[in-house]
């Protein structure tokens, strides 16, 4: 029987000054940093740091499908593989993919698919590999956000980006962007993602309990947060090119 220090849940998730344990206000996001083109070999890639979450996403495709029987004659397929490293969590995770990883892969694939024109690429596959190097709550949202960036970086025609965030309830208060500990010790968790071309929800899960009024509140909180993250995504996608433009014009004048 292994003996391990348990990560203990605190009694209260708010400090005396009304801020959250990591010093944030209720609607404040954790610091987010994104970058594209981080994996040389991939057709498209992106890296994201969202609080303590550190996630890589890489896209390969369109390419021939392995195993071949999965290929569809009339359309391409999108496959998403969300994985966590053994050391990304408190207790060492087993190296083989678990049920949770498979479910999240599916949820993310369903979320991304409406963005693409898969019917244009029959018999091929697009593969999105998401690797969570360090996890601290909200990884499925962070993974969805970074996967969209990787797809855009690969130059795969897509209707828009997609952005995701989790809102939740801790100590009876509604908050945005749950951290790992808030996720575990909190009362409710609602991860959601928006596809910007139609501004509709493309990923939605919920665990906990809420009444109708709270539901409305939840969604409006999410919408504000999503716009904020979307801006970071856009900047990350353009940054690489703008920097080169500036470097070049600076050298000329």
């Amino acid at each position: 029987m292994p003996l391990i220090i348990k990560d203990e849940y605190p009694e209260k998730l708010f400090r005396d000054d009304g801020k959250r344990l990591d010093g944030r206000d209720k609607t404040e996001l954790r610091p987010i940093k994104m970058e594209v083109g981080v994996v040389e070999n991939a057709d498209g890639s992106a890296y994201l740091e969202w609080g303590n979450n550190k996630i890589f996403a890489a896209v390969y495709g369109p390419r021939e499908v392995h195993p071949h029987h999965l290929a569809k004659p009339d359309r391409g397929i999108l496959r998403v593989f969300y994985r966590m490293t053994t050391y990304s969590v408190f207790e060492r995770k087993r190296p083989a993919p678990g049920r949770r990883e498979k479910e999240i892969s599916m949820v993310i694939a369903d979320c991304l698919e409406p963005l693409l024109f898969l019917e244009l690429y029959p018999g091929t596959s697009f593969e999105v590999f998401i690797e969570v190097m360090d996890a601290d709550g909200g990884t499925r949202c962070a993974a969805t956000t970074v996967a969209a960036l990787a797809l855009a970086d690969a130059g795969i025609p897509m209707k828009s980006l997609v952005t995701a965030v989790a809102v939740g309830k801790i100590d009876d208060e509604l908050v945005v962007d749950l951290s790992g500990i808030e996720d575990k010790a909190g009362q409710a968790d609602l991860p959601c993602a928006i596809t910007w071309f139609n501004e509709e929800l493309s990923l939605l899960q919920f665990d906990g309990d809420m009444n109708l009024k709270q539901m409305e509140e939840f969604l409006s909180l999410a919408k504000t947060a999503l716009s904020e993250i979307y801006q970071i995504q856009l900047d990350a996608l353009k940054k690489k090119y703008i920097e080169i433009q500036e470097e070049v014009s600076g050298g000329n004048s």
């Binding site: 991939a42 890589f56 390419r63 994985r83 190296p95 593969e127």
Partner: peptide, 17 residues
């Protein structure tokens, strides 16, 4: 010591054990 060649890292790497 364990090592995993992530499919991220190269088109030559495949998923799986």
């Amino acid at each position: 010591v364990m090592a995993e060649l992530l499919p991220i890292a190269s088109p030559l790497f495949e998923r799986g054990p």
